[in-house]
Each structure stands twice: as structure tokens, then as C-alpha cells.
Computed example of a mutant assay.
Amino acid sequence: MKKTLIILMRSPLSLIGLVLVALVVFSAVFADFIVPFPAHKGAVVDFVNFNKPPEWPYIFGTDLVGRDLFTRIIYAYRISLILGAVVLAIAVPIGVTIGLAAGYIGGWTEYLLMRLTDVFLSIPPLVLAMSMMGLLEPTLTNGMIAVTAMWWPWYTRLVYNLARSEKEEGYVLAAEVIGASKMHVMFREILPNCLPSIVTKMTLDFGFVILIASSLSFLGLGVQPPTPDLGSMVAEGAKYLPDSWWLTVFPGLAILIAVFGFNLIGDALREILGVDQ
């Protein structure tokens, strides 16, 4: 804990990342108490105040049907964080388990699992997600499925390389000599030594998951209106640039803040946990 605080205090960028992520999470969790117009997260129309530039009480302006943009961005953060948390909660255990099995057991198990992983890795992530969303109804649940399908192979490849190097270490050989099972060796001996790299990658990936999900929404394949989503707001506002610039600039900045914050935290964790570059 002391080492963590020292590194954070020495690095202004780490502190900035921590503040940005804390701000995003706090805003998403307490959105109902922060936003000035909670009803504007849904299908609300206020043509009296439509397409207004930033001014009080609409500090980020309003959209084309009069909804407060600040309110919708804060609620969109909630959707993005839920999506990121669920995707990683599913993708990481799958990828880690496959990577451990392939790296430690070896043989045909390694060959079959890693060739399957290579197939997924050979397809550009966004293309794979777009292909899946083209077959599924564009909902939040299906968006999570599509992003999860493209994310687990990266953890498989990471843990596979770590497990291959760790299985020759003395502590693994000692566990095998005393008769420990393969499951024990993989999950009780090797996995704990892989956790620093996994945690660091998860932190970095959280921002990228938000970015990919926003990209799908930008293309019309993600969360659908009237549910607020950063990508769909950027796409809608882009049609009215440069006159109604606030429709695109503020949702775009919201994406930037979230991705930038998680990347800075990930870099700090890499230094704190001693993960190789």
C-alpha cells in the first residue's frame, strides 16, 4: 500500500488517471442525484428547448428533441461501465482458463486450444463484433455478447505465454513431485503468479471495451435510442457539424476522458505490480 501511494504521488499522470476514473464511476453510480433532468434519459420531447447551445441550466446544451445532453452523457457512462464490467467478468475467466490449460498441459490440448484462439485473433476485433451484431438484434445484452466473443482470445494468449514460462519454475516442479493435481497446479500455483499481468491488462482493457462498444453504437449496431449511449450520440451529432458542435464534442470528450483515465491507471498498475512492458 505504501509503495502504491509513493508511485502515485510521484506520477502526476497516475493521479490524473485516478481522478478521471473516480469521476466517471462516481457520476455513473450517483447519476440519479447528479443530473438536473433525470427524465431526459428516456423518450422525452421538449421542442421549446431543442438544439440549444451550452447555457444554464443546460450546461452541455440540448439535443434535437430538447433533452439535456449532460444528463444523457452521465447515464451513458452508467451503460458503458456496466458493459465493460460484464464483458471482462465473462471474457477474463474464459481466456485465463483456456490459456492455463494450453500453457501447462501442452500436447494436443495446447495445439487445439491455441489454433482456435489464433482463428479468433486473426479476425480484426471490430470486424468480428460487427459481424456478430449484424446477426443479432442491437441490444445491450447482444452488444456484451459480441464484445466478449472478441475479447477472451487476448487473455488466452497472455496467460498461455505466462503459463509456459512458469511451469518450469521450481515451485511448480515441487507441487508435481508431491502429487498435486493439474487443476491445483494451474489455479493454485501458476495463476497467482499471472495475476499482476492479468489485472494490469484488465484495467487497460476497460477503456478499450468502452471505446469498442461506442464504435458499434456509432455504426448503429449497439445500444439503440432512446437509451443514452456515447457512440450513438456522437453519430447523431456528426450530421449537424459544425453548427451544432456540442452534440458531438461533449459525448466525444466523455469517451476520451473514460479511455484516457483507465489507460493512465493501467500504466500506473504496470509500474506498481512490476509487470514487464
Score class of each variant (00 low, 15 high):
66 G>F: 01
25 V>I: 13
218 F>G: 07
56 W>M: 09
135 L>H: 02
137 E>M: 06
202 M>A: 13
226 P>L: 05
214 S>N: 15
276 D>I: 04
67 R>Y: 10
72 R>A: 03
20 L>K: 02
277 Q>K: 14
43 A>H: 13
8 L>E: 02
261 G>I: 07
214 S>L: 14
190 I>G: 00
261 G>P: 09
212 I>E: 13
181 S>K: 10
224 Q>Y: 02
10 R>V: 07
16 I>H: 02
36 P>C: 04
8 L>F: 10
19 V>G: 11
171 Y>G: 02
6 I>D: 10
12 P>G: 06
25 V>H: 08
17 G>P: 05
270 R>H: 04
26 F>P: 12
100 L>W: 11
57 P>E: 12
154 W>S: 12
7 I>S: 15
14 S>T: 12
102 A>P: 09
249 V>L: 13
89 A>F: 03
92 V>F: 06
269 L>P: 02
85 A>N: 01
119 V>F: 15
131 S>H: 05
13 L>Y: 09
276 D>L: 07
22 A>I: 10
221 L>G: 05
200 T>C: 03
143 G>R: 02
211 L>E: 13
119 V>M: 15
83 L>E: 11
207 G>P: 12
114 M>C: 04
106 G>S: 03
133 M>T: 09
60 F>R: 01
159 V>R: 03
83 L>V: 15
250 F>A: 09
153 P>T: 00
109 T>W: 13
128 L>S: 11
155 Y>C: 06
162 L>V: 00
57 P>G: 13
248 T>E: 10
107 G>M: 14
204 L>E: 07
8 L>R: 01
145 I>E: 12
84 G>N: 03
236 E>C: 00
169 E>V: 09
138 P>V: 00
4 T>W: 15
173 L>K: 14
